[in-house]
């Protein structure tokens, strides 16, 4: 496992080196891609100068708010839908097709509802990420082994105790998978909305740099997002795998 991760890292590094070489030899025009070493330099300048600190803070805050809302609301909705047979039959066909709908189109509706501020962006991000949490919650509750629930009944646990001592621990790994997806989708939702629709945040900063031919700055910002999102996703993925392997015991 460890060895394989090293090979993966080596492949990534080899690709970066190849790009660096292609840039140095002039196979790739500077107007298209700048060498990775310059991207790193630009990223360093961006972080040192503090020029984008406000945009970074804004984007991270929006992502965090979206994550908190979609995980908590998604969990509650998932439990509610799971509890009612009617609701479940009503919602399930829509859940299966949900991600086919391009949510971004409805941004102006949220502008009307919330005004021109972060709330509209957070709403889009929540729309994108909440369904992952709802589906994971329902799936987790479905997969609780019946024998555990029977044990709870034999031990005459109250519903609250059953929920806290039996159902929650048994379904926790599935809930975590949902939470992890919510984080990834929140990043996508916030940054994509900023990029296309808003006038603020990291996504907008990249679009702005592109429109002004500021390639160096643009690639620095891209690198920042790619590294940050990759680190977050990898950490959560590792935790997720650990929890899942506990399930298989």
């Amino acid at each position: 496992m460890r060895y394989r991760a090293l090979v993966t890292l080596a492949v990534v590094l080899a690709c970066v080196l190849a790009l660096e070489l292609a840039c140095a030899l002039g196979w790739v025009a500077r107007t298209v891609i700048i060498p990775p070493s310059e991207m790193v330099g630009s990223l360093r300048d961006i972080l040192w100068s503090g020029e984008f600190n406000r945009a970074i803070a804004l984007t991270l805050t929006n992502v965090m708010i979206s994550v908190v809302i979609s995980i908590s609301a998604g969990f509650v909705l998932g439990v509610a839908i799971h509890a009612s047979d009617f609701l479940r039959r009503a919602v399930e066909p829509y859940l299966a097709s949900y991600y086919a709908v391009p949510t971004f189109i409805f941004y102006p509706v949220f502008i009307v509802l919330f005004g021109v501020n972060s709330a509209a962006i957070i709403a889009i991000a929540v729309l994108l990420s909440i369904v992952a949490m709802i589906t994971a919650t329902m799936n987790g509750l479905d997969r609780i082994p019946t024998v555990l629930l029977r044990t709870a009944r034999i031990m005459r646990l109250s519903p609250v105790k059953t929920a806290l001592l039996i159902q929650l621990p048994a379904a926790a790994p599935y809930f975590f998978t949902g939470a992890r997806l919510s984080v990834a989708y929140s990043f996508i939702g916030v940054i994509a909305s900023e990029f296309i629709l808003s006038g603020d945040g990291l996504g907008y900063a990249i679009a702005y740099a592109y429109n002004n031919f500021e390639n160096r700055q643009m690639y620095g910002l891209m690198l920042l997002i790619v590294i940050a999102v990759t680190l977050v996703n990898m950490t959560l993925d590792r935790l997720d795998r650990r929890l899942q392997s506990r399930l298989r015991r």
């Binding site: 996508i188 994509a192 996504g203 679009a207 643009m218 910002l221 999102v229």
Partner: peptide, 14 residues
Amino acid sequence: SLPKVTLYPLVLLI
């Protein structure tokens, strides 16, 4: 799981 929009300028430049 990357926000691929950030890479769109790269696609446009290519």
